[in-house]
Amino acid sequence: METKTFKDPALQAELERRLDLMTSPDYEDPARESFTWSDLISIFAVVAVLCIGFFLWGY
């Protein structure tokens, strides 16, 4: 399936080339990992500790 995005043929061809690569079953990119529940809990735990701690100290 071709994706019509650019009027420039060279740019469109490059886009198609990249999309073919990136949608292939054996495409690997370490950045494609999703945030897990433990990631999100860790993030919000850090923020919660910072907020509560500094509020108690500074206010």
Binding site: C51, W57, G58
Partner: peptide
């Protein structure tokens, strides 16, 4: 200063 540090940490971290 102390209130400001606390407010900066709270506001920016969130």
């Amino acid at each position: 200063v102390k209130q400001g540090i606390a407010a900066a940490v709270i506001g920016n971290s969130v």
